[in-house]
Structures are given as C-alpha cells and as structure tokens.
Write a protein that binds this DNA or RNA. Structure first.
Lengths: 208, 208, 208, 208
DNA sequence: CATGAATGAGAGTTCATTCAT
DNA sequence: CATGAATGAACTCTCATTCAT
C-alpha cells in the first residue's frame, strides 16, 4: 500500500558510521531525513503550495510521522529551505574562496544563484522574495555578498555606489528568467548584461 | 433576515431602453464588461489566486453569469489580462513614438514595465512568466520591443548582439524586485544597472 | 448519492404562504432551516462535539452548503442554541405569565429546565456551563429569573436572601441528574427537595 | 540535534536493586504505579479528554509501556479513577465515623464531594455521570451513603422518604456548580439550600 | 519487557465549478 | 439568460493505538 521505501536519502548515513548506535533513533532519523529529502524535492519541483500528502507519499511515511517530525507544513518548509540554503551558501563560500579574481568570484556567485534556481523552485522563491527562508539565512547571505562586494570594490572592479542590497536584489531578480526560459545560454546572456552594468566601467552615480 | 433583494446591479438597466429584442444582448454585454472590469481590478490587487467569488461580488453579478461568459477562471484571467496587456502595450507604443531619443524610448519602456508591476500584480506576473497572457500578446510585445531594439541599434546606442528576447526577459526579470522592495528608488538603481549593461559602451559579445 | 432530501424542515413554510415569492431564496431558506434543524437534533443527541459531516448528512446538504450558511461550526452551534434557547425562554415566559401562583411559576420553570434537559444535550450544556449560548441569552434569562424571584419574594414564599444567581445555578445544577437518571420520577424528587430548600419555611441566612 | 537520550525516568532504578529475576517485575510495577500517578494528576487537571501523550510524558514512560499496562485509554482512566475513588470513599468513611452528629456527617459528605470536585475534574465527572468509575465503586458508595442516610433517618433529622439514590444524585448534581462558579461561597449557598430541603423540617412526601 | 516512532482515519474548513430556479 | 446556492474533493492538522527495534 506504500512504496517499499525510497532507497535514497540525500543525507546518507555518515561514511564510517558503525552499526546504528541507538536502537530506534537511527530509523527515526532516517525517516526524518527521508521526509526532508522528499519535501525538498517536492518543494523544489512544485513550489511551496504542494499538498503535504505528496511529501508524505514520496517519503514513504504516514501523515502522523510527518507531523511528528515537523509540527506544521510551514516548519517543514522552513527547515527544508534552511538546510538547502545553508548548503548552498556554504558552496558559495567555497567557490568564492577558491576564486582569486574578485570579479570572477562575484560572477561565479551570480551563476550559482541562477543555476540553483533552475533546480529548486521553492528555495529560490524564498531567495527572491525575502532573501532567504530565515532571518538568519538572509543575514548570512548578506554578509557573504557584502564580502564579495568589498573584494570587488577594493580591487576597483565594481561600479562605485553599488550596495550589498543591490547585489542581492539583482541576483534574485535574474532568477525569474531561469524559470521562464529553459535554455541556459539564454539566461547567461542576461547575467552578463547585468554584471557588465555592475562593472567599474560605469562610474555614473546610481539614483538616490 | 436577508436584505430584501438588492435590486441594484452596478450597471442599472439603461433608462429608456425599449424591450427591444436586443435588450438582452446589451445587458449581457454590460455584464460581461462589468465582470472584466472587476476581474481586472481584483487580479491586479490580489494576483491570479484570488477567490472567484470576489470578482463576482465586485462586478455585481452572480457566479452563474460569470461562468456563462467565461467557462473557467482561467479564461477570465486570460481575457482580462489580454485587455490590460493590450492597453498597456498601446500606451507603450504611444510613449515610444513620442520619444525621440531611441535610448530614452528603451529606458522609458523599462520604466513603464516596472511602474506597472507595482500596480498590477497579475498582469506583470504573466509578463514575467510567459511574456504576456497570450501568444498573440507576446508576439505583439516582441514586435514592439524589436522595433525599440532596432531603433537603438541603428542609433548605435545598443550593445551589439542584444536580442529582442534579451530585452523581454531582462525587463521581466526586474519586475521581481518591485514586488520585493517597496521603495521606488531601490528598483530604479537596478534598472539603471541593467540598462547600462545594455549600452553600447559594452561591445563584448554575449554568450552563445 | 444523497438521501432524496429529508422532507421535514422543522420550520415549515408559513401556513398560507403562496407559491414561493422569490425564485431561489425559498430553497436556500429551506436548506438553512434544514441545516439548523439537523444541527439542533444532532447537537441535542450527541453534544457539541459531533462531526460537522454528520450534520451535513442529516440535513441532506453538502459541506459547502453548510459552510455557506454558517462560517464555522462554532457559528452553527451558537445559532442553533440561540434559537432553541430563545424558543425555550419564550415558552418559559408564557408559562410563567399563565401561572398565577408565584411559587408554582418558579417550580414550573425548574420543571421546564429539567424536561428540556432530557431532550437537548447541547442546549442544556450551555445553560449549565455559562447560563446560555450567548451573553444576550444569559442576560434575558437572568432577567426572567429575577422577575420570578421578585414575584416569589413579594409573595413571601421565597427564602430570604436567595439571589437570582442562586436560582440560575441551582436549576442548572439539577440538569446533571436528568442526564444521569433516565427516569422522570427520579429527578422530580430532587427538584422537589431543592425547591423546598428555597421555600420561605427556611429563614436561616445563606453563607456569605 | 536531539538531546543525547535523557537517561532519566522519573522513578530511577532503585540503587542497590540486584539483577534479581524479579527485577523486571519490580520495575514493571514501578512503571505501572508511575503511570497511574501521572494519569490521575493529568485527568484531574484536564479531564478525561486529554491526550494520552501527556500522561506518558508526565509518567516518564513510553507509549508502548503505557499500552502494555493498560490496553486502552479507557482502561487507564477507569483504573485511575477507581483508585482515586476508593481513597476518596475511605476518607469519607473516616470523616463520617469521626463525626458524631448524623446530620453533620451528611453535610460533611456533601461538602467533601464538592470540595473534591474543585480539585479532580475527571473523578467527579464520573461520580456525576454514573455514580463512580465502576459498578463496584458505585455500589460501595451507595452502601456508604445508605449508612449515612440511615443514621440521619434514625436520628429523625432526615426528611421522610429520601432515598439513597436521592442523596447520590443530589450530591452529584451540585458538582456542576463548582465547575461553573469558581467562588466557593457561591456553591456553599446552593449546598445549604439543598441540604435544607433534605431536612426533616419537610415532611411532605416526595413524588412517586 | 520498554521505547517512542509510525500509523491513518477523521476533524474543521475552502473554493472552482455546476445547476435548479 | 441571470442568479447564487449547492457541490465535494482537497487541504492542513490531531490523536488513539500499533509495532519495529
């Protein structure tokens, strides 16, 4: 009556973990992970409005189990996005750290935003609308972007007057087009245009 | 316990209208118009997800009438947006025609897109997602933008390689930020940046 | 898929009412009445905790219809009880007015409370717990009881110091026994005892 | 992300308990007691409708243990009340035995009923509805009340014709008011009235 | 034998669409 | 041809009870 349990939790049991340390917890944790995995996938595909039952079905658990782990749909959504967002931001940090050229670091971030957008609807929806699923996430992201901005500024490659908020909004704004146009080459063009508008080649002051 | 039957449809029967065989037609047409008007307002305010009842209420007709004229919510939405879109595009034409400077015509269009976005949620949503409510609308819009593009191109003020699609997507993409940030000065900055990226100061080829 | 429509609305179309004056309203009113009737019956039988679906089923309407007439279960409950309470209090008024002897009027009221209790669980539950389904109901009831009390007091048949609140609480308190013991003769004995305790034969002051 | 497994059941394993074969038994018995204790407290506070989880939480055992000892919520409720009821009745016996004046013994019992009502919701609910949680309890209570009644009767202080059932019902009936009115002085008035109605000052026969 | 996670049948409520009047 | 009442599937969430570990 239920699929035989999807075999693929995203977060697999940590590599060298020995036989489950505690009788039950392992299974519960597996379920919890399965729910988040499923939720993440479902939210990514259909957005935040999907039926919770779809998530329960996909994760192979009953409604009760789902609600035992997450007291409300809202909570599940938040947690799922929080996790995704964190992973995403971590990757962003790594990439930026591995990139010497400040401008390339910035463009790399824009690229990551847009690539992710193609694969996770709910995640990027939250990025676009509020900057992230959580105040804390938004803050961290802002801090990260601010660092990027300062690097570029000090290298003299960023248009004067560009704020962190500008970068946040602009990167989010471009997300729309990824949803709209399936073709990657298409949205890369827009990204290039916007980034060029951010370059220090332009020195005219921005409004207000 | 119930109001004695509000005898007052918003559009009252025209005074001297004879019991002409066409009376019904006229009435129906009036209803149809009232529905579209109301739908337009409601969709603009609350987006495409509003309860259909709200539209019926606002237009002063019953649900049956509404569904007689429009077989589904979808249809009503499409038609309402079609109309709005056309009016909007007409205005865009007029403005562009009245603007001598090609570049100013282009920026003026971007500005109109974003200003409208602040006032008509559903309309711009469709613009962002598919370029317009209808294939036909999208086409007309594309033609218009193409004209703008050509004017700019011929004046040598547009970055080489920028396509009509680019302009369509880019203008739509900026819409997001209007929703997100309430402040007009905020989104004007992003618009400036994007437009600058479109200027002929940049001659590097765009990807693909 | 639904019973062919229970033929018996409690509130039948007013006697000499000619063919339904208004196209639809009549039917809707019938449904509304059917819902209240069903709700009243169901609440009376099972208390306030029944499934709303049971009411919908019993009244022969869909859930939507029920919720069209009453925005929430709470509202339906309140209205149903309000109606019952009013009818009940009206009858109480009539009886009291038709009874010359003040003491008999008081006992008659107690009797009515208990008789009703045997037939309407939710109604009397509200009477017992808060004095009625609504502040307004409670007030009216209090006023009525106060009148009864004054009549008895002036006739010198009521124990000195007995307050309106005492009478309200005492009548409610006896309700319990009706639920408990099915036999009418049983609870009449208790009523007699309590009423005797209220008689002016006792002149000892009440506590506090 | 989860507390490291709270190692602390409320009733910790007694220090020097040997790994005796009876160890399990003892443990089980301790659990059973803990459950009843918790259930009693919880039922007293919130009534019989509380979530079973609350009881498990409060007793420090898992749901499985709870259901091992008590096959259903109903059973647990019954047992908990049975125990409370017995203790309560024992106390009633003691008080009655320690009271010389028969009438004072009777009033004392009424007072105990009402005082308890203020402190143990579920217990008194069962008293009110069925006379007690169990046929056996009801019987014992009836016997006790009958003794009280006989003492009063023989002392000539009880209204002739008052049955044991009358006393049972009347004392239960007054419980309602304790729930309703918080003020102790308020329900004492009603109690006084009812008791006065039971006094031998009234010699009129009771109905039926 | 204890654990507490899992279950799933409802609960109250909403809304696009249909249909009797 | 208009009306707006009726429909009912779908939604989020709860809780008594079972079952794998």
């Amino acid at each position: 009556m239920r699929e035989p349990r999807a075999a693929a939790p995203t977060t697999a049991p940590a590599a060298g973990a020995p036989a489950a340390p505690r009788g039950r917890r392992a299974d519960a944790e597996r379920n919890r992970a399965a729910i988040i995995t499923a939720a993440t996938a479902v939210f990514a595909e259909h957005g935040a409005d999907v039926d919770v039952r779809e998530i329960a079905r996909r994760s192979g658990v009953g409604m009760g189990t789902l609600y035992r782990h997450f007291p409300s749909k809202e909570d599940l959504l938040r947690l799922s996005l929080e996790q995704e967002f964190t992973a995403w931001l971590t990757q962003a940090h790594e990439r930026a750290a591995a990139t010497e050229d400040p401008w390339q670091a910035l463009s790399g971030f824009f690229e990551q935003v847009l690539t992710t957008q193609a694969h996770n609807r709910a995640l990027m929806d939250s990025y676009v609308q509020t900057g992230g699923p959580t105040e804390s996430c938004v803050h961290k992201c802002r801090v990260f972007i601010d660092a990027l901005r300062q690097r570029c500024e000090q290298a003299g490659v960023l248009r004067p007057g560009v704020s962190t908020e500008d970068l946040l909004s602009l990167s989010g704004s471009l997300c729309t087009t990824v949803q709209t146009v399936g073709d990657e080459r298409r949205w890369r063009r827009l990204m290039t245009i916007s980034l060029d508008g951010l370059s220090s080649r332009h020195r005219e002051p921005l409004p207000s």
